[in-house]
Every structure is written in C-alpha cells, then in structure tokens.
Design a protein around this nucleic acid. Structure first.
Lengths: 242, 242
DNA sequence: TAGTGGTCTAGACCACGGT
DNA sequence: CCGTGGTCTAGACCACTAA
C-alpha cells in the first residue's frame, strides 16, 4: 500500500523531470495541488516535503514553491552516494571481485576498538585481514574488527565473498549509518607486497565505523586502497537540519 | 518565533540525552506526549520527525518509538560534518589561517569546467591558485574556478581571507550542496615547492563542485592537502529516503 | 484483539513576500 | 493589502505488532 502523498510526490517529480512546469515560475500553489489531487493541503505538504529533501524544489514562505536549478542533477547525485554499500555492490558489473584472506582470528578488542565498537574488553571480536581483488588485480587491503556477538558465524567462505551481503541477505540485518575518516598515507611494506605497488605509491586510507540500522556499531575497519584503483565520492545535500 | 514542534523536539531531545527515558523501553506514546505538551498528535509527529532524521529515535508501526543505540553519538557526529564549511571555519581556533595567492586571473572555461559549472564557453571565470597556511605552515594548495557572473567583485583581499565568508556574509548568499571526489596522488613539483614536502609524500586530492542553496554551481576546485595536515570526515546517516 | 504509529481531513490562524 | 507557505488542531480510519 503506497500512501497518497508518496503517489502525489511521484507524479509531481515526474512532471518536473518532463519539463511540464516553468523553471523560473513557482509551481502551482498548495491549494491548487490539493484541488487537483482531491486531497488536503497537509497531504500536499507531505508530498512536497519529499521533493524538498531530495533537493528538487524549495519553498519560500509568502512567495511560492520553486524548482531548484540543477534540482534533477542534485537528486541523481544524491541517490548515487546516499547509502553505504559494500565494495562487491559498488563494483557489480565491472568484473569479478574476489578476496584473499591473510588472517581470520579471534581475540579481545584493544582499547580503541572497545571505544569505536562500544563493547567491553572481554567481548571477543573477529580479527580479519583480507585483500580485495577485481579481476585478479589487487585493489584494497582491509583490516576489519567485528564483534562476534553482533555477527555470529562468520566463515572464510563469507569473507571470500561479501560480508555485507551475508549480513543483509543471510542474517536479515539492515546496515545504517557510517562514519569514515579519509586520509592519504605512504605505502608500507605490506601494501607494497599485497597491493603490488611501489614505495612511492600513495595509499588512500579509509578508517570507518559502520552501524546497523538500530545504531549498533558492527564493524571497525581500516581499508588501504591502491591510489590508482579507487576514489571516494561524497555528496552533501545540506538539508540544514540545524 | 520558534514553532511549537521544534520546542517539543528540543525538550524530548534533552530528556533523552539526560537519560530520562529507558533505552530499551519505548518512549511515551504519541498520545501521551500530545497530552503532556497540550497539543495534537500531528504536532508530536512533526517533533519526532526531527529526532528521526537526526538518528536519535526510530518508530516502529504497531509497537512504539524507541531510542536508538548510539543515537546521541550519531547525532553529534552528524552535526560535525553535516554541512560543508570552508577551511577558515573548520580551523577556527586552531590558529591563524592565511593565504598566499599564486594566481588570480580571468579566462574562459575549459570544457570540463563548462560541464561542472553548467555555463557556456563564453562565460568568463576567475582562475585562482592559492596556498592555505595555518600558523605559517602550508596545508593545502587549491586551484579554484568560479564564474564571474555568480560571484562578482572577487578581490585578492577576499582571497587572502575566506571566499566562503565573503559569499555568505557579504553577498548574503547561502551555500548548499557539494559533491566531492577524494583520492590519493603522488606529489608533483609544485606540491613539493609550495607545500614544503618530499617526493615520497602522498597528497590527499579533493576535487569538488559546490552549489549555492538554489542549486547554482559556483565553485569547481581541486585541493591538494599535505597528507599529514588534514583528513576528511564523512558521516552518512542513511536516511533511506529511497 | 488492543494498542501503537502512519496517514489523512477540513478547517484555522500566523508569518512573510510582493504589490 | 492579498496571496503564499508554515503551523496547528481535533478528530478519523488504517496497518501493523505483540500479547
């Protein structure tokens, strides 16, 4: 059952994309929309709310609701990077992604890991190091820490494929927020060996914590990318939630 | 004039932060909140909507509204990197940010710039190269392209201080979305000269387009960071607007 | 089945913009 | 001043969850 305001939003979104309205003129008033769709103003507002957070329109009190310049472009950008997906997803279609597992152990978390994953010192974690390859070419070397209690029954088989796929498809958990810190570093000996790169090659280092939908942190990881085999796209729609 | 639902959201947000409610139990029902705040359920829902997009609470139809684990942590993270601010803002308080201007010219845009900034080939742009320093130490070398028509009357005086400050405070324009692509690169000769770094030092390269609130792209830039003087924090709340 | 959140209504008043 | 969007109300019905 799709709600009425979502249907209305979809209709208006399509009409905007098809150039049905003037770019500089305001859209029909909320009153006019309400009449057109046989509904109340509150419902129209919920529909327009959706388009607002997508960055397609903006409303000015006392004036009207306007189509944003580049509204469509921005809304496409938004979709592109709004949700975090694993590498396997990202590269879907570009070739076969495989993994070479360098370590798969159990141990107790360090103090930093306890902090990042919000767990106690006696709570065991998986300690994983793997190299991700696209069509046999090494892309990334990852060090991953995952609490055993949150994601039980990890196996090398899972690690060879996709951890994210396992969590979402097999365990039925939903991945939520993430926090990433990105920097450039010099390559170390391990990078050179496993990523097949030189001393002078820089590394794109991504340190991240990923949360489940309910807010449980489930992964703290360091990913080191070959500089020529990956960049990161960040889009900020600036919703000014304040 | 602060709206009622914002006041209510603020009150509930504070009570959650102070540990007034149980983490595992649902919050009071919307009905109860409505009675408590002498208002209607719709208004309570608008208040809870705010807390939802902040990642503090989540609602489950048929069950109740719950505090998210790490809800507070996430909401703080969110504030930290939600809106794009210029470097001068970011480093406010850490020392004095100054600029050394290497180039400040006018020219016509390249094809790539025409695409990124959505302008015609005959539309003139500023062509800026500057080094940003914190307490005399070089941090970043920036190449910036800005359409003259969008941001008129740029001056070296502005470039020495903050472009973003000029745009927001003096021109009264509001900065909106941004799209950034981040990668690691080897340093080139210019980096080594102006950032005072070695051949082996990697560079954190950020290519970005920044938009005004109405969707006009106003800046296309390449910023090259000294790898030891800057990383980038990216937080993704995953609102799944779908 | 009872209780919850999700949606929706038909009004109302207010804040603000442009005239 | 009028017309716009922003807020708010007091209900109503529905969809879903949990007992």
């Amino acid at each position: 059952m799709v709600s009425k305001y979502e249907q209305i939003a979809k209709k208006i979104r399509e009409e905007i994309r098809e150039g049905y309205f003037e770019q500089v003129e305001p859209l029909p008033t909320q009153e006019q929309f309400a009449t057109q769709f046989h509904t109340s103003r509150m419902t129209i507002q919920k529909a327009l709310d959706l388009l607002r957070v997508e960055g397609i329109v903006e409303s000015r009190q006392g004036s009207g609701t306007y189509i944003k310049k580049n509204g469509i472009t921005l809304s496409k950008l938004n979709r592109q990077s709004d949700e975090y997906v694993g590498l396997s997803q990202q590269l879907r279609g570009q070739g076969e992604v495989t993994s070479r597992i360098l370590r798969f152990d159990l141990r107790f978390p360090t103090e930093i890991e306890q902090g990042k994953l919000a767990i106690q010192s006696e709570e065991p974690v998986y300690d994983i190091v793997r190299v991700r390859l696209l069509e046999q070419e090494p892309l990334i070397i990852e060090e991953i820490t995952i609490p055993v209690r949150t994601i039980p029954k990890l196996s090398t088989q899972v690690l060879h494929r996709s951890i994210y796929g396992y969590i979402e498809d097999k365990l039925g958990l939903v991945i939520g927020a993430s926090s990433r810190r990105i920097r450039a570093e010099r390559s170390n000996q391990r990078d050179q060996e496993y990523l097949n790169c030189c001393l002078e090659d820089p590394i794109l280092h991504v340190e991240q914590v990923v949360f489940l939908e309910d807010g449980t942190p489930f992964e703290y990881s360091h990913a080191r990318h070959r500089h020529d085999k990956g960049d990161i796209l960040v889009v900020n729609l600036n919703k000014k939630t304040k």
